[in-house]
Design a protein around this nucleic acid. Structure first.
Lengths: 303, 303
DNA sequence: GCCTTCCGTGAAAATAAATTTCTGCATTCT
DNA sequence: AGAATGCAGAAATTTATTTTCACGGAAGGC
């Protein structure tokens, strides 16, 4: 048996998406030839990952050594390391390059949507503040009643989803997507209650009003929203979901995946916050799986 | 200027995830040394993408030529091509390798959920049947009324989402998550109507009942569900969403992302199916963006 | 205004890596 | 049991990448 530990050096200096990002905004690329190289590589990333150094050099009209230096400057250990880094980031980052391509064929539409959704998830993960997520989960797990607010097609989906996920964990929760009703609930909420509100834009003034009222009444609030937004300012705990606005690729449509994932994570953390609840959760999942496999269930739980 | 066309050969024979998949289930790997190599590579994919052929050979206790043959057998053009392919699939596929890792720390939970969601999206994309999606979109675009059915936390989300997405495109649509009501709607639906139903499990017998009734009544039906399932059999057009069941990593939780993406794609195709509708859609998106940037909107459309 | 210095670049050499060829060995079929 | 098939490794070849060195241009100082 060979259990000899390998060197295992962490060669890649640049984070995977940073490579594509660095390439597109020309980070640290001073010379014109290097910019040319960046352009050539970005113009066809797939070619770049497959080609040899001489092929790339020829395409950019430079010499191989220039390509090597270029790779080093970008923080890669070598040309092959660069190719690997590029390949790593290509899948996630490709859409950054042509963000406003008008998609027409069904296949393009599908690829576009899937890639944007994946990018949104990726960005969410990068920007997540685990501390506030944990605090939010603790708060929710210890609450006696949860109100989930959200309005409009997207945030109402999130509010409903919060209910869908948390009631299974034994939380007392109701989702409300009605502004007037939200206000009444906020006015009537008793100590021990927690209010969690979602706003993709961070500008839902009705939720802000509710949060203001709740702060006065010392009912803790959690916001799933943009950092620094009005909704964020009004909440006690902010689960910030900031997808870079500069790139237009994050429409509400794809942002939703990020919000949904945030809810998933939150729900999981709530489950783990309480050992007993966690055990119950795992048991129910197991049961669900067993039932599923037996095939004699008429209806899968929570289809 | 050098505008010499490069060879641009499409070297990678294997699709990116297939590589990780092929590696894990040992596709076509007959010899024991090759299995050993696969195990070594899977045990530390990051090492494998960074290491040289001799390092990998040493770690697996084989000779470099064996590694080369191994790469070829997996459909790669060369060892470096293999590394690139591996790097491409690593980000998406890593979680396949430790599917049942018990996640405990918040960071692990987050990574787990995000990665599973991304995998689900990836698998969805791989398995999508564009033809049936297009037909479904055409059908929906040409309908006079749409009913969206779904039950349980997840499929009801999808049904509501269909309504949320399609009403914006000028479709007449209502979502219903009430079994009894679904039956009544099915019995009352008039020619020109289309019914679209979602079932993650494919075993929603109530939807099957509705679809049977609708088939008798010659009202076309679309199913978002597992291929080959009862629901699929009962529908006229099936948008099959098959996430590999063998790996337990696709719980309903992550499957939902795939369904959601399918709805997104469908909605986009519906929009493109009708030039006029498409124009309207784009205008409204534009308006939304402009409003968003102006910052004087009180409430973002569809927050 | 000219000279010096620094930086970027490419040619060529050197090095490192990967692949091919060939031989030996094990397994299996006749 | 003997032959044939196919896989694995050693060595050599080939390929690719990197380093070194020398040149040229640009910027700054005298």
């Amino acid at each position: 048996m060979t259990d000899a530990k390998p060197k295992g050096e962490d060669q890649g200096a640049v984070n995977s998406t940073d490579l594509i990002a660095a390439l597109s905004n020309g980070e640290g690329l001073v010379s014109s030839l290097e910019r040319k190289l960046a352009a050539v590589i970005l113009s066809d990333v797939n070619f770049a990952t497959a080609a040899s150094i001489t092929e790339i050099a020829a395409k950019a009209g430079v010499s191989p050594p220039t390509v090597t230096r270029f790779c080093r400057r970008l923080g890669c250990a070598s040309f092959s390391d660069f190719k690997v880094q590029l390949a790593k980031s290509a899948y996630v980052g490709l859409r950054y390059l042509h963000p406003e391509t008008i998609t027409s064929t069904p296949a393009e539409v599908a690829e576009d949507i899937v890639t944007k959704a994946q990018n949104a998830l990726f960005e969410l993960h990068r920007g997540l503040d685990m501390a506030s997520l944990s605090r939010a989960a603790e708060l929710l797990a210890g609450s006696s009643m949860i109100y989930a607010f959200g309005a409009g097609g997207n945030s109402s989906l999130i509010a409903n989803e919060l209910q869908n996920r948390l009631f299974r964990l034994g939380c007392r929760i109701t989702a409300s997507t009605d502004h007037a009703f939200n206000l009444m609930l906020s006015a009537a909420a008793e100590p021990g209650a927690v209010v969690i509100g979602s706003s993709l834009s961070g500008r839902n003034t009705e939720i802000v009003r509710c949060f203001d009222l709740l702060r006065e009444r010392e009912i803790p609030t959690i916001a799933l929203t943009r950092a620094g937004s009005e909704v964020a300012a009004a909440a006690d705990i902010v689960i910030a979901i900031d997808l870079p606005e500069g790139k237009n690729i994050f429409r509400p449509t794809s942002t939703r995946y990020a919000f949904l994932a945030a809810v998933d994570i939150l729900a999981n953390l709530v489950a783990y916050a309480d050992r007993e609840k966690s055990r119950r959760l795992l048991r129910s999942i197991k049961e669900q799986l067993v039932r599923h496999r037996d095939g004699d269930d008429r209806q899968l739980l929570g289809d």
